[in-house]
């Protein structure tokens, strides 16, 4: 009997402690969102730790993650400082899903925030994140466009191959070089075909970029066990017309392919 009473008391105290802990955590999280309204470079970081913990703690709990994501999106839309938006994009890069994409993608054209938007979108696995980057890539120019091209390459977004192929002929050669590199990462049949053609006609300033991207395609094929197709690319690039570093790289690639067949 005594044991049951003691057990009940312990259970009650534990419940109160846990409940109190949850309430305190909720309060701290609310405070963190409040702080973000005026957060700027040089502000104290400590109040944001509750938010840091909430993002980590949402692992494996879809409901908690989506609830938190919604609050982060609301905060992003309400934020007035670059520092606050920077912080929120970082958190969304960890916990964000398709739900946050419209709000984040809205920053892609912003000179100051485009990178942090990509910081999130590049990491969020949801197809909507790639779609947002694809939509932006043909609307932007200069460095912002280069950044988005890069993010699509990192994501190996096959659906962007068409838009990137068009950018091989961009007037800005840095954009064309970035597009070639991204296509090399994507390395799907459309990208390979475009790079095969581009590396033959690329202007002198882009020859290395084109050949490098084509080499990347070959490596991808080799990694996927498609040795014959990889060797075909290496043969194309091992010819005397190619710059010496490309010839050597192609030769090394063929050797690697030979090893793979052993």
């Amino acid at each position: 009997m005594v044991a049951r009473i003691v057990g009940g008391i312990v259970f009650l105290i534990a419940g109160l402690l846990i409940g109190g802990g949850v309430a305190a955590a909720d309060e701290a999280l609310d405070r963190a969102f409040e702080v973000l309204a005026t957060y700027d470079w040089g502000s104290e970081r400590a109040p944001l730790q509750a938010l840091d913990r909430a993002v980590v703690g949402a692992h494996g709990d879809q409901q908690a993650a989506r609830h938190l994501e919604n609050r982060l999106v609301e905060a992003l839309e309400a934020a007035t400082t670059r520092a606050a938006k920077d912080y929120l994009c970082r958190q969304l890069s960890l916990v964000g899903s398709a739900a946050c994409v419209p709000a984040v993608a809205g920053l892609l054209a912003d000179e100051e925030l485009s990178h942090m938007a990509r910081y999130a979108l590049q990491r969020i696995p949801a197809p909507a994140a790639a779609a947002a980057l694809r939509e932006a890539v043909s609307q932007l120019e200069g460095n912002l466009q280069i950044g988005v091209i890069h993010s699509l390459g990192v994501r190996r977004d096959a659906e962007s191959a068409g838009a990137l192929i068009e950018l091989l002929d961009a007037a800005d050669q840095q954009v064309a070089a970035a597009a070639a590199a991204a296509l090399g990462q994507i390395a799907n049949p459309a990208a390979r075909e475009a790079l095969a053609e581009f590396q033959q006609r690329a202007p002198a300033a882009l020859q290395l970029a084109a050949a490098d991207a084509y080499l990347a395609c070959a490596e991808r094929l080799l990694a996927d066990g498609q040795r014959t197709q990889a060797v075909a690319i290496y043969r194309t690039l091992a010819t005397a017309e190619q710059p010496a570093p490309i010839r050597l790289a192609a030769t090394r690639g063929m050797l690697a392919a030979t090893r793979q067949s052993d």
Binding site: L144, G153, Q174, A178, A216
Partner: peptide, 13 residues
């Protein structure tokens, strides 16, 4: 991974 600030992408671009 972390995204890199444009134009300093490091995939050859």
């Amino acid at each position: 991974s972390r995204s890199q600030r444009e134009p300093w992408s490091n995939l050859g671009g």
